[in-house]
């Protein structure tokens, strides 16, 4: 209990020190918060993009447009061939007449279509592959393209490939950003603690003269660094939560317009905790480095 009370006392003291000059104290925390919210915000966006990707790529389709000269017999062979292909989950035949009817209904082109002399649309298969990875889909598409009487095999989700590549890029960018800004956080804490050690020079000297151990002298500064880091982490968390809150409505409107029920996912509890603990740890590390560097310079005379 005594030890606990002592630690609480040190923590309270650290908090007071942190805001002994309120403006610079707050500024430090805000700077740390912004630095941290960039990579963690990107992380949240990527999580969401990944969710979106999983949703759309769960049902990729390849449209197989047949040549105009394909007859019923050719279609029957093709149907059998598709059914036997292990890479294909389902293949639905869309006769050219149905395709025209669908087109007339869905797009209000009824007048235009009614004016046509003959049906310009080919027969088609809509193939649902088992694979969802872009590479496997591409392979399958190339394979299908080579089948006789197939005019065009079209992967209607080529953009997934691009999105995936973009996500890979964003992931690396996030890592780099996280690394650099973590370094910045450590540097900011290092400097805060350096200044604090300088202003408490007398106190440190006197404490050493009357028997303070190094860990006793060190402890308040480590608390200070850890606390500044954690407050920065909380700030970053607040910024992200606020941004997500404002983005939620527009995103769901947008996805509804695209016929999806995708909704922006908030930062999970585990991720929130990780963010705060990580920032606390970085603060602690900055303080530790600073203390190791500067405290030994203060020897009592």
């Amino acid at each position: 209990m005594g030890a606990l009370a002592q630690h609480a006392g040190i923590a309270q003291n650290a908090l007071r020190r942190l805001f002994s000059s309120p403006i610079s104290g707050f500024l430090n925390i805000i700077v740390i918060g912004i630095a941290l919210c960039l990579p963690s915000g990107m992380y949240v966006l990527m999580q969401n993009a990944q969710g979106l990707l999983a949703e759309v790529s769960a049902s990729p389709q390849i449209s197989l447009f047949l040549t105009m000269d394909a007859n019923a017999e050719d279609i029957a062979t093709l149907r059998k061939q598709l059914a036997q292909n292990p890479a294909i989950g389902k293949a639905v035949f869309v006769p050219r007449a149905d395709a025209l009817k669908n087109l007339a209904q869905s797009n209000g082109l009824a007048d235009v279509i009614a004016g046509l002399e003959s049906n310009p649309l080919p027969d088609a298969f809509v193939v649902s592959p088992r694979a969802t990875r872009a590479q496997a889909l591409d392979l399958l598409r190339n394979q299908l393209q080579k089948i006789p009487h197939v005019d065009l095999a079209q992967l209607d989700s080529a953009w997934i490939y691009k999105l995936e590549a973009m996500l890979d890029f964003a992931r690396i960018l996030t890592f780099i950003l996280a690394g650099l800004l973590s370094l910045a956080l450590v540097a900011i804490t290092f400097n805060t603690i350096r200044l604090q050690i300088m202003t408490q020079k007398d106190e440190i000297q006197v404490a050493k003269l009357i028997g303070a151990t190094n860990s006793f002298v060190r402890r308040p500064f480590l608390y200070l660094g850890a606390m500044q880091g954690m407050l920065g982490g909380i700030t970053a968390w607040l910024i992200i939560v606020l941004c997500l809150h404002f983005l939620k409505q527009p995103v769901s409107t947008l996805s509804r317009l695209y016929g999806s029920n995708f909704a922006l996912q908030p930062l999970s509890a585990a991720d929130s905790l990780t963010l705060m603990l990580f920032s606390l740890y970085l603060g602690l590390m900055g303080a530790w480095l600073s203390v190791a560097r500067h405290l030994s310079e203060i020897e009592p005379r």
Binding site: D202, E203, I210, G211, A212, T213
Partner: peptide, 17 residues
């Protein structure tokens, strides 16, 4: 530190905070 805890020292220049 453990040596100094056993020594009470009154400094010529006080060293008060």
């Amino acid at each position: 530190p453990f040596l100094r805890r056993n020594i009470g020292m009154i400094f010529q220049d006080h060293k008060l905070l």
